[in-house]
């Protein structure tokens, strides 16, 4: 069964007297271990959609099932618990906790969100530190490393809980293009190793090429779906 099933999702924002239709009937399915991207111009609804999939917001209409869970039914606390156990997040501004070292930032979800015993915790962190190539920077604080390095740490933090799905809203927007490629390729490699689904948004055409599935958004609607290596529709 698909990891994500979106059926005719709508999302309206009320701004004063005006209703903004950010998403107007979006439907799609995403299989486990996919590496897909939502692309589209500014204001097309990428962030809105990722927030819905990320269980950070609720659709106005339509159903959205993530990992067999109808996310519209979760209350605040259940949503938080769901995010903590099933999802990983990578942010445009990296959003590492400034008071924690590289190692501690990766450790954070295992301590504060899940409750993983120390031995396993250490093992997972070490493995990810190696995988993202940050083992030698482990004791540095976020303000002592570069943007690309920060995003590598953020990837490790998102993966350390073994989520089914990692969401990344414009993960490369604050990086130069060479670093952006490196980060996207790291994500792809992690998908290959761990079979974690990655969904990211971007409006950088060069980066889009790295995705295996591309959903094009315009004015809150999906206008094209491209699947590499075979299936491509509409």
């Amino acid at each position: 069964m698909a990891l994500i099933i979106a059926d005719n999702i709508r999302k309206d924002y009320q701004v004063g007297d005006v209703v903004v239709h950010a998403l107007q009937g979006v439907g799609f399915e995403i299989e486990p271990a996919s590496f897909v991207s939502f692309v589209g111009p500014s204001g097309s609804g990428k962030t809105t959609l990722l927030n819905l999939i990320g269980c950070l917001d609720k659709p106005t209409a339509g159903t959205l099932t993530v990992a067999d869970t109808d996310i519209a039914r979760l209350d605040r606390k259940e949503s938080a618990a769901f995010r903590g156990s099933h999802l990983g997040f990578i942010f445009q501004d990296f959003n590492l906790l400034p008071v924690l070292t590289v190692y501690e930032n990766i450790e954070y979800p295992l301590l504060m969100v899940q409750n993983v015993p120390p031995a396993e915790r250490k093992e997972r962190i070490e493995r990810l530190l190696d995988a993202v190539g940050m083992a030698d920077q482990r004791d540095k604080y976020p303000d002592q490393i570069s943007g690309g390095q920060k995003q590598r740490v953020a990837i490790a933090r998102a993966l350390v809980t073994h989520p089914a799905l990692v969401l990344a809203d414009e993960p490369t927007a604050n990086l130069d293009s060479q670093t952006a490629y490196a980060v996207i390729n790291l994500m792809k490699r992690m998908r290959d190793e761990l079979a974690t689904t990655f969904i990211f948004s971007t409006h950088d055409q060069k980066i889009v090429g790295e995705a295996e599935g591309i959903f094009r958004l315009e004015d809150g609607s999906i206008v094209a779906k491209e699947m590499k290596g075979g299936a491509s529709h509409e």
Binding site: A81, R83, S85, D93
Partner: peptide, 16 residues
């Protein structure tokens, strides 16, 4: 606020 948003997004429970 942004740090709070981050830790809340990655699943830190409100009580924490």
């Amino acid at each position: 606020i942004r740090e709070i948003g981050t830790i809340a997004a990655i699943g830190t429970l409100p009580g924490r």
